[in-house]
Simulated assay, not measured.
Amino acid sequence: MRTEMLLTNEPPASVKSAAELYAIAFEQAETAARRYGELATTGDESFKLVRSVFVILEQRELQRARALSLACVALLNKHPDPADLKWAPSDLVPAEELSELAGSSLSTPYGAWALAVRHRERGFVFWTYVAALAEDDAVRAAAESMAREALNDGNELRRERRLAWRHERHLSAGDGLQDKSSEIPLAALLESLLLKDIVAWSQDLPAIERGHLLAVTGGDLTERLPVPAPMRDMAPDSDTIEDIRCRAIRRAEQLSSIYLDEADHAQDQPQLELALKLAAHAITRLADLRTMAAASAR
């Protein structure tokens, strides 16, 4: 499973308006363009091939910023305005990551494309969280659209990453990235245990809250996963509700990470699409569980 969690990109608060949403998206795109642009003009001759990747990435982000600005004008009759920001947008393209790549003599185009894929994965996670937390239907729909855009961008960047991998290792067109065993069987077990935790969590809640919590399990995409035979949870019967809530959230986090990892290592389009659907569902579920846990603790 991935060593770096992408799930730390949860927004600190819900986005209340379309103006705020476009201000966040525009700020993130401009920041990404600026940071990619710095690497597009730095380094010695040995960094030339890597630098060319960042020239492309900078242009992609500038184009995205322009598209966001035009969409904001069309919808709100104004350009994205930093004054509409209620909190500092999550940093999806950390400067320290880029500086590490720029400062390494072992940097390659593959490494640059792989980093760009990770950045758009962060965008997918971030906007999925925004959609899950949104109270306004229009904001939720716009955030879902931005999450889909991040997915499409990620797919395009994965193709570039794969081409760079083959070029650097002189692989044939039929070869791919290193093999990785699937963790879907583990995910199926975790889904089963998470369901038990959610049911246990719901037992002492008032009827309305219990219904909201159990609704998190409804219409689950995991119906398409192989479900293992029922197993006894190893946790002691003396667990408190707080223990159960914390365990449920840990399992929900692990499942989100597994599905993101499966998407990153997908070998074909159907596998990728299923993993991304599972990831989107898992991230939304995680956001819901965190919100309900915070409400229960008050």
Rank of each mutant, 00 (worst) to 15 (best):
292 M>G: 10
211 G>Q: 08
205 L>I: 05
283 I>Q: 10
284 T>K: 14
37 G>I: 10
210 R>A: 14
43 G>I: 00
97 E>S: 09
109 P>R: 13
14 S>L: 00
132 A>N: 05
150 A>R: 04
221 L>M: 06
288 D>I: 03
283 I>M: 12
169 R>E: 07
189 L>S: 14
40 A>I: 00
260 L>A: 13
298 R>G: 08
199 V>M: 08
230 P>Q: 03
77 N>I: 05
186 L>T: 12
267 Q>A: 15
94 P>R: 07
42 T>I: 10
228 P>G: 08
62 L>D: 01
254 Q>F: 03
135 E>K: 11
118 R>G: 15
92 L>E: 09
268 D>M: 01
294 A>L: 07
169 R>P: 02
217 T>H: 02
108 T>Y: 08
112 A>Y: 01
95 A>R: 08
78 K>Q: 13
133 L>C: 02
208 I>L: 12
2 R>E: 09
106 L>C: 11
232 R>T: 15
65 A>W: 08
298 R>S: 00
249 I>T: 06
256 S>M: 01
296 S>V: 06
225 L>R: 11
64 R>P: 04
201 W>A: 15
135 E>D: 13
176 G>A: 11
141 A>I: 04
64 R>C: 04
1 M>H: 03
60 R>V: 00
183 E>G: 06
253 E>P: 01
226 P>Y: 06
181 S>W: 13
131 A>R: 08
7 L>P: 14
95 A>N: 10
95 A>P: 01
140 R>Q: 12
169 R>S: 09
133 L>F: 03
209 E>F: 05
208 I>P: 05
292 M>N: 04
220 D>E: 08
239 D>R: 15
54 F>Q: 07
160 E>Q: 15
129 Y>H: 00
287 A>L: 08
92 L>S: 13
236 P>R: 11
233 D>K: 02
273 E>K: 02
263 A>H: 11
185 P>C: 00
173 A>D: 13
77 N>G: 13
81 D>N: 15
273 E>A: 05
196 K>I: 06
41 T>V: 13
71 A>R: 08
15 V>P: 02
84 D>V: 11
138 A>T: 14
228 P>H: 00
216 V>P: 01
168 E>C: 09
169 R>W: 08
48 K>Q: 15
72 C>M: 07
179 D>A: 14
183 E>R: 12
170 H>S: 14
13 A>R: 10
193 L>I: 04
7 L>Y: 14
266 A>Q: 04
266 A>V: 04
113 W>T: 15
86 K>W: 09
52 S>W: 01
265 H>Q: 09
147 A>V: 14
36 Y>V: 08
19 A>N: 09
103 G>A: 15
183 E>P: 01
105 S>A: 12
42 T>K: 10
165 W>H: 14
131 A>V: 13
271 Q>G: 10
82 P>T: 05
186 L>F: 06
201 W>L: 14
66 R>P: 00
131 A>W: 12
234 M>N: 04
257 S>M: 01
224 R>L: 09
158 R>C: 07
280 A>Y: 06
19 A>P: 12
201 W>S: 11
187 A>G: 07
193 L>H: 01
41 T>L: 05
171 L>V: 10
185 P>F: 05
